[in-house]
Design a binder for these strands. Structure first.
Lengths: 263, 263
DNA sequence: TAGGCTCTTTGGTCATACCTTTTGTGAGTA
DNA sequence: TACTCACAAAAGGTATGACCAAAGAGCCTA
């Protein structure tokens, strides 16, 4: 426990209004907003931090647990509790969206529509901003898709990565995070039906058209080809579901192991 | 503790792989996905549920805490733990996005760009699908805006609600949730500067144009007027920040009390 | 010097007790 | 009869203390 810790972690005021653990959450969140806790930082041990904040260990643990569920903190037994770094986990976890989908009966149509809106915008931006390196990465993933036309599971991987790289090329990390969140739910549903997939060739061709539009710096074409691609993908997935059974309401334990562990 | 509870809540297997509390989270999540837990349902008391699941109360509480942070469960002291209903809290909490913004230095520009992408899509869909009642609600909020041109705080409220109603008219709850998440962060930043706002008249006029485009069933016009509106709003907010100081990195405790309490 | 063993640190789990809020019930009263 | 108030039961929140298990650092040996 260093002196700087004694400076940074102020005791929770006794005249607190709400629940103690919420007060601790608020305090930690404030430290992040003020930049006193930065990605990769390690928090003091729970026993010490609890004393610093003037609360019991269970209360502190409750607060840490909340922030961990939001993907802000990550605890590793024996090692410590850390502020997550951007590369270590998806910025926004898809599990809450997946749960809301089950809970409130979001339809697969709504999901695809949302994805389409996000990815069309992303494709347009990527066409304006993609760097040479990003174009090269896109081309590589495309090659991977063509190379795995006969292995649906493998193809799906390259497919996912292609879309993630388009998102990266858009230069907007928020849109990227939102897309990943929505797409993760759909990919989870897809994983169960992909073995019945066919016409991967056509899908690969459409990805190439998207790539070309981005490479040619044509935002409008990028948006339109992305739209066509996703409409077709929706049709294909719905057909696969029709033939097999998996739908949004029977999602697997998708995001169960996402965003918990460090690098 | 009813018999049906003994049926539904199966004991966590001893041959579990990961952490016990994560296993409990997985189990509860599974029950939601399978529809065994529905919005508004009340969970058994912690002491009973812990026994049913074969774990200790702290472990169960950790799991509940995680799901509460995701906005899926909500506990009320003295009352019980409930599965949240859609109306009771935003579907997706903005606090995690807000934290990520601070943590990874998301720029206000990225934020506005994401909002623009979402709301343009939403406006287009609303123009296709808005019902008569929804149009009436939009008109009402517009009236409220014109009526509060001299009260910035009040105007901001109507502004927010106008956009939420456009979202509702889009018929896509996922896009609505995403928009609310992003917009909440921006509105939080705005709340601090809105007293310096001027030209609210021009803003109100733009909302009227958006309303007209939606009423006239013109998706393209709705998208474009929404785009112009948000670009102007961005310019205005950046000017306000310039003059005053508040930015994305000094967000207030915005979402602290969002999504915790029941109705 | 390299590899492995051990001890310490640190989060994870458990058991128990007690506090605070909520809620329902029932006695008492108008 | 109906309304009010108070009390008790229920249920989540907090605190303590102990022990388990994983990770890592350091030492010791080959």
């Amino acid at each position: 426990m260093t002196d700087s810790n004694r400076m940074k972690f102020k005791t929770v005021e006794p005249e607190r209004r709400g629940l103690t653990s919420e007060e601790v959450v608020t305090q930690l969140r404030g430290m992040i907003h003020r930049g006193e806790l930065r990605p990769g930082d390690r928090l003091p041990p729970e026993r010490d931090l609890a004393k610093l904040l003037g609360v019991s260990r269970p209360t502190l643990r409750a607060a840490i647990r909340s922030l961990a569920a939001m993907g802000v903190l990550a605890s590793r037994q024996g090692a410590g509790t850390f502020v997550v770094k951007a590369e270590e986990s998806p910025v926004l976890d898809s599990s809450s969206l997946s749960l809301m989908a089950s809970l409130h009966g979001f339809t697969s149509g709504e999901m695809f529509e949302a994805r389409r809106a996000l990815e069309m915008a992303i494709a347009g931006l990527a066409a304006e901003r993609a760097t040479g390196e990003q174009l090269a990465s896109l081309a590589e993933e495309m090659a991977g898709m063509y190379a795995s036309l006969e292995e649906p599971e493998n193809y799906l991987l390259h497919d996912m990565r292609f879309h993630q790289m388009v998102a990266a090329a858009s230069g907007n990390r928020i849109l990227t995070a939102l897309m990943n969140m929505v797409a993760a739910v759909l990919f989870d549903a897809r994983r169960k039906t992909v073995r019945r997939a066919h016409d991967l060739k056509e899908s690969a061709e459409m990805h190439r058209e998207i790539y070309r539009a981005i490479r040619d710096r044509n935002p409008e074409a990028a948006r339109e080809t992305m739209k066509d691609h996703l409409l077709l993908a929706q049709k294909a997935q719905e057909a696969e579901v029709e033939a097999g059974g998996a739908s949004l309401n029977s999602l697997p334990d998708s995001s169960k192991d996402a965003g918990e562990e460090a690098a």
